[in-house]
C-alpha cells in the first residue's frame, strides 16, 4: 500500500530532475573546471563535467534505478520482511509455548508437593493410629497377664499357706512326739498326751 503511494511522486520526480541536471546546474560547472583541465592536458574535457555524456548517463540511471526500485519494493524487500516476520512469529510462539510448559511444570510441582504433604500427614495419622491401637492392645494384654499373674500368685499363696499349715501341723505333731519321748527319758513313766499337746502348742505360740 505504502509502496504504491510512493511510486507516484518518485516517477514524477525522476522526470523533473533530468532537464535540471542535464541543463544549467552541471553545465556551468563544466565551463570552469573543464576548460582548465583542457588547457593543462590538451585533450578532452574533464570527464565528469562533459555534458555530452549526460543524456546517456541519466537515461541509464533512470532505467537501472527505476528497475532496482521496482525489484526492491516488489520482490526483495517483501521477501526479507517475510523471513523476518516468520522468524519473529516463530520466536514469539516458541516463547509462549515455553511459558505454557513452564506453567504446566509449576502446576505439576505444586500438585506433587501438595500430594506429598497430604501423604505425609496421612502417614503421620496412620502411624499415630497404629501406635495408639498397638498401645491399647499391649495395655490389654498386659492387664490380662497381670490379672492372670495375680490369680496365679493368689493361688500359689493359698497353696503356700496350706503347705505351711500342714507343715506346722506336722511340726506340732513331731514336737509332741519328741516331747513325749524326752519326757519319758527324763522322768520316765507315762505322761498324758493331752498335757504334752497343750504344752507344745503354748510353746509354739509363745
Amino acid at each position: 500500500m505504502a509502496q504504491d503511494q510512493e511510486t507516484g511522486p518518485r516517477t514524477e520526480a525522476e522526470g523533473a530532475l533530468e532537464p535540471v541536471a542535464a541543463g544549467q546546474g552541471a553545465e556551468t560547472l563544466h565551463t570552469e573546471t573543464g576548460a582548465a583541465y583542457k588547457a593543462e592536458d590538451g585533450g578532452g574535457t574533464f570527464p565528469p563535467f562533459d555534458p555530452s555524456t549526460y543524456p546517456s548517463q541519466l537515461l541509464w540511471l533512470a532505467i537501472t534505478f527505476g528497475l532496482l526500485y521496482y525489484l526492491m519494493s516488489k520482490v526483495a524487500l517483501p521477501r526479507i520482511s517475510d523471513i523476518l516476520e516468520v522468524r519473529r512469529d516463530r520466536i514469539a510462539d516458541d516463547i509462549a509455548e515455553a511459558e505454557r510448559l513452564k506453567r504446566e511444570t509449576d502446576d505439576a510441582i505444586a500438585a506433587y508437593e501438595q500430594a506429598l504433604a497430604e501423604a505425609k500427614s496421612k502417614a503421620h495419622a496412620i502411624a499415630q493410629d497404629t501406635r495408639k491401637s498397638i498401645g491399647t492392645e499391649i495395655e490389654e494384654k498386659r492387664k490380662a497377664i497381670d490379672a492372670e499373674n495375680a490369680e496365679k500368685m493368689a493361688e500359689a499363696e493359698k497353696r503356700i499357706d496350706a503347705t505351711r499349715e500342714t507343715a506346722l501341723e506336722n511340726v506340732s505333731e513331731i514336737a509332741v512326739d519328741a516331747t513325749q519321748a524326752i519326757v519319758k527319758q527324763l522322768i520316765g513313766g507315762r505322761t498324758a498326751k493331752k498335757d504334752i499337746e497343750a504344752a507344745v502348742s503354748s510353746a509354739l505360740r509363745g
Binding site: 518518485r10 520526480a13 546546474g25 540511471l61 534505478f65
Partner: peptide
C-alpha cells in the same frame, strides 16, 4: 556529478 546530482534531485 551528473549521477549523484540526479540521485540527490530525486
Amino acid at each position: 556529478i551528473v549521477v549523484t546530482f540526479a540521485l540527490a534531485m530525486l
